[in-house]
Amino acid sequence: MKKVKDQAIWFILPSAIGFIIFFIFPFIISLGYAFLDKPVGGQFVWFQNFIGLFQNSSYQKALRNTAIFMGLCVPLNILCSLGISMVIKNVKRYKQLFTLVFLIPLVIPSGSMVFFWKMMFANDGFINGIIVNLGGSAIHWLETGWALFVIVLIFIWKNLGYNIVLLIAGISSIPKDYYEAASMDGASKWQSFKFITLPYLVPTFVLTTLMSVINSFKVFKEIYLITGDYPHESIYMLQHFMNNMFSSLNYQKLTTATTVLVIGITLITMGLFKIERRVAE
């Protein structure tokens, strides 16, 4: 027993050393800044930054918008990818080809991707061209309430493939016998979906939810490039807030915001694991 433990230590050591230097230290340092009044030569101010942050109207707006965005995107993304996965599962040929197609958005360089979506939704872009040709009047996609719709679309376009792969994997791991047994008992297709597929996919849902949340922060890079630093107020997100804090050297406010964010995501993660465990029981 003792020997096993020692050996495990040797395996974990390379990763742990690097992880502590390049991840734990930065993590702690950046948390530490949240309690200082300025990044260089700052004074310890306890929770003053947190109080200031929650009173900040821009932050409140960003927080609210991000909540709306996530509340919209994450379930929508899971629903869409679940639908498509079920369809892919039911086709016989070209399964892998179709899966690959949905992975393509992951490889397109962000430069071309931004270019494409900009050209699509600009005021004089492709979609407005079609609308005007059909006799309608052009819509300012990125400067009105439509902007939220546009970024939800981009988010789903970019992340659907990721979820589809996870879900297909999850679906195909459900033993076929269950379905056969159910159809013998006279269950309809809908019933077997509801009572077999959905419950067995819960661990996968947990995974996709967590990955969607993380990925939604990654896709912001592109959204930022498409809509600019100061987009229409309905899509002013936490990521905009944090980016702008960075460019105005307000590092303590930035780290305060990320600390709150990390606490939030930690709670969500813990909640998800708890749900998973309960379903598993």
Binding site: I29, L31, G32, F35, L36, Q43, F44
Partner: peptide, 12 residues
């Protein structure tokens, strides 16, 4: 968190 606070107080 405790480690953080300790570190920053030192730094401060």
């Amino acid at each position: 968190l405790v480690a953080t606070i300790a570190l920053t107080t030192l730094a401060g």
